[in-house]
Simulated scan of single mutants.
Amino acid sequence: MSINEEVELLKTVPIFSKIEPAKLKLIAFTSDRMTFDVGQELCHQGDIGDAMYVILGGSADVLIDSPNGPIKVAELRRNGFFGEMAILCDMPRTATVKAHEKLTALKIPKEMFFRLVAEFPQMAVEIMRELAHRVEDMNGKLAAAQAA
């Protein structure tokens, strides 16, 4: 895939939609495009968070370790992203992410992530929105589990 094709693809990702094409080229150039097969881990709970990922195609399961084995807490699809919490909080990964089907992702290094957030406040707002949705979703799941 050419840089221009990657830029067109990045324009469809909500957190990048307000970024000018020249900067999207920089993201495409400085990030790694990765492919994962079914069942392959993109990251593992407890690992150091050195990058965030944006899913360009396919889907992945978000799994949390428990005494009874992994628990699926979410599914990520095209345009979804993860890994930002480990970068923002400078903490280990909070979950394992495993490809549910063949998946293509863009791996954005920590330094580039902070540069983008500093240059594009709208990107930071979109990330905060997504984090708020995740908290709301988790609260709903916890309430349902307590009621059961």
Rank of each mutant, 00 (worst) to 15 (best):
M1P: 14
S2E: 09
E5A: 09
E6Y: 07
L9V: 08
L10Q: 02
K11N: 05
T12K: 11
F16Y: 10
S17K: 15
P21M: 14
P21C: 13
L24Y: 06
K25G: 11
L26H: 12
L26Q: 15
I27S: 05
A28W: 11
F29L: 11
F29P: 01
T30G: 07
R33C: 04
M34G: 04
T35F: 15
F36E: 02
D37C: 05
V38Q: 10
Q40W: 00
E41A: 01
E41I: 00
L42M: 06
C43L: 07
C43F: 00
H44M: 03
Q45F: 00
M52Q: 08
Y53N: 12
I55W: 00
L56F: 03
S59I: 05
D61I: 03
D61N: 13
D61A: 07
V62E: 03
V62C: 03
I64H: 06
P70E: 10
P70W: 06
E75T: 13
R78F: 00
R78T: 07
N79Q: 11
F81W: 06
F82D: 00
F82Y: 01
G83E: 04
E84K: 00
P92S: 01
T96L: 02
T96M: 02
H100C: 05
K102P: 06
T104G: 07
L106T: 08
L106E: 06
K107H: 08
I108M: 12
I108E: 06
P109K: 13
P109I: 09
E111Y: 10
M112L: 15
M112G: 04
V117G: 05
V117C: 10
A118K: 14
E119D: 15
E119T: 10
E119L: 15
F120H: 15
P121R: 15
P121S: 15
P121F: 14
V125I: 15
E126A: 11
I127E: 04
R129W: 12
R129M: 13
L131G: 04
R134E: 09
R134K: 11
V135Y: 08
V135D: 07
D137T: 12
N139T: 09
A143K: 12
A143H: 05
A145F: 12
Q146L: 14
A147Y: 11
A148W: 06
A148G: 13
